[in-house]
Computed example of a mutant assay.
Amino acid sequence: MNNEVSVIIPVYNASLFLEKAVHSAIGFDEVKEIILVEDRSTDNSLEICEKLAFTHSKIKLFQHPDRGNHGAGATRNLGIKKATGTFVSFLDADDYYLPNRFNAEKEIFKNSKIEGVFGALGVEYITEKGKEEYQAKFKNTPLTTVNYPAEGEEVFKGLLGLTPRIFGTFFHLNTLTLRKSALEKHNLRFNANLRVHQDSEFIIRLAYHCYLKAGIIDKAVAVRGIHDYNRITKIIQYSPQYNQRQYVYWKSIYDWAIGEKSLPLAAKKRIYLIYKSFDLSQKKGAVKYGYILFESIKNPDILRTQYRFNYLK
């Protein structure tokens, strides 16, 4: 893997953290290039990007052709387009890699069947307010990871909650390394229309189309910086704004699932029930309960999903 990884960093208003993120990636022998894609920041992030690109040949700076703001999905897509490495990995501009970031990949990618490797993400509390908001939403969870090693179809099933053992519902993009050829083969890109949850939506589709394998999942390979400006901690769970965002996210997954002829029926049903739960949460007034009654008669399982209280409230 030496000199084969393109690290893609979308940059938007990250001036306080960007240099640490870049420096955490630049020293790896595995890293061929660091692709900074600046998304029309309103702070001095662009100036920092230009300085970094000037000082090190590994660092390459790009902007959207119109130099506009297009969101993280479209920005990562541009990074994938510009990447020249055999592998691509991702890093948020306010996070950083740890020294063991590519340890698992060195061995796992010797198997040509493996198209992607993921690991565990740790946390660093940068501000006290950020810490309070994060712990209020996620408790004192030291790692974002899955519960046991898995690969192939079990990763996709696990993310949808379709495995006998509880796999875990998420692994973070910062810990993911992919063969670029797999992205091209399956025409996989981020949904540029999603301004939030585009990473989670991408991971679901990725796990279906590509053969993924767990790497280091019991200790962190990268760290998420927790500060006052993390969007993930600003929305109260099961609030109207939370339900709206989840609805948009799961509608995108549902629309994708409809077009996938070979998608297992159990997966299609699971995706539909989650999507419909958040869809029902958007209904208002007395008519809402008519929709709930109709849906529960048509699909009784919706009353047994973990998301049922989204719309029963």
Rank of each mutant, 00 (worst) to 15 (best):
T127K: 04
P99K: 14
S41F: 04
K60A: 00
V123P: 03
F17T: 03
I26L: 10
F118M: 03
L46I: 12
N103A: 15
K82I: 03
V117I: 06
G130N: 09
Y97K: 05
A53K: 12
D43R: 07
N77Q: 07
P142L: 07
L143Q: 06
F138H: 14
E38K: 05
E128L: 08
L121A: 04
L36Q: 05
D92R: 00
G119P: 04
S89E: 13
T42C: 05
E132R: 07
I59G: 01
H56M: 13
I35N: 05
N111F: 12
D92S: 04
N100Y: 09
N69V: 11
K113Y: 11
E132W: 11
S45W: 00
F28N: 07
A53T: 10
I108Q: 06
A25C: 09
I34L: 08
R67Q: 04
N13W: 10
E47T: 15
A120T: 02
S24V: 11
D95A: 03
S24C: 12
K137H: 07
V22N: 04
E128M: 07
K81D: 07
N111L: 14
G116T: 00
K131I: 12
G27C: 08
D43W: 04
V22D: 02
K20F: 09
F17V: 05
N111H: 14
V117G: 09
V146T: 00
G79I: 00
C49D: 00
I35R: 10
A120E: 10
Y134W: 10
L52K: 10
N69W: 01
F62T: 02
T144R: 01
I26H: 06
I34Q: 05
E38W: 05
S89R: 08
F54E: 12
Y97N: 13
I59A: 01
T75L: 02
K129Y: 11
I35P: 06
E115Y: 00
N77Y: 05
N13H: 11
E30K: 08
A104N: 07
V146D: 05
A136L: 09
L16F: 09
A72G: 06
R76Y: 00
S89P: 06
L61A: 00
L98T: 10
K131Q: 15
R40K: 15
N111S: 11
Q63H: 04
E30F: 11
T55L: 14
K131N: 13
K131V: 09
S45K: 07
D94T: 09
I126T: 08
A14I: 12
R67A: 12
K106M: 15
F54R: 15
L143I: 06
D43M: 03
K131L: 13
I114E: 05
I34M: 09
A25W: 03
S41A: 11
Y134S: 01
E124V: 14
L46D: 00
F62C: 03
F62K: 01
